[in-house]
Write a protein that binds this DNA or RNA. Sequence first.
DNA 1: TTTACATATTCCTATATTGGAATATAATAA
DNA 2: TTATTATATTCCAATATAGGAATATGTAAA
Lengths: 116, 116
Amino acid sequence: MARTKTTHDVFSAIGEPKRRALIDKLVTNEMTVSQLMSATKWPQSVVSKHLGVLRQVRVVSERRSGRFRYYRIQPEELRPIQEWMHQFEKYWGQTLDQLDSYLATIQSKGKQNERH
Amino acid sequence: MARTKTTHDVFSAIGEPKRRALIDKLVTNEMTVSQLMSATKWPQSVVSKHLGVLRQVRVVSERRSGRFRYYRIQPEELRPIQEWMHQFEKYWGQTLDQLDSYLATIQSKGKQNERH
DNA sequence: TTTACATATTCCTATATTGGAATATAATAA
DNA sequence: TTATTATATTCCAATATAGGAATATGTAAA
């Protein structure tokens, strides 16, 4: 038997670092494939294919406009992850509130983490 | 190039459903391979190999006692996931508090989800 | 209609699993 | 010492990627 499909569920889908990177880019606003290409410096086929996986698990939705396709994140689809994580919170102390700077951090780190 | 290694990081490691199932079993107490075998009904090699991946990413630790090996979860290692998820919380409303029943649920669901 | 652009899809290669059976190891019991 | 038990590891087959180049598809611009 082979590895679990990346489209098996949200957990499998976000296992791939590049897909998480794409999600991070999409957190603030919807973007086209071209915009994601310049933001990531990845080849078009790479961007499109990763988006395809994310779309299959519903983590992103697609909006067509002319020859453009705007991809938008669907946060609700990530709920299962948050729910699964919930069982560990009690072990590391209610530090959830101290994470407010994380969004800014992850956004700025983006450019550095892009290379493999 | 091939798929990202399952041991690349915690995200990749928990992408596999069986590994999450093992983690769920270990949430409350440490267990030996044998105990996990009877809890999951999986072959010994399957249990041991998945534990091996989890150990490589530090999500579980191993304590040896005679010919037994007790596996224990290391919740801190899952923090990166929680931190990454944090950026989406604002979108689905602070419902984190309503998840208190999740642990009980996931524990009871265990037996049903074991198959495949 | 012809051309250009945005994106998806196909083809191909290299590779990393996953599951299971068999086997190797280590430690305890007889 | 020998048999037994607990677990890790090896070997094998099947398969699902991920990346990149090339190509197909769809839509707008000239």
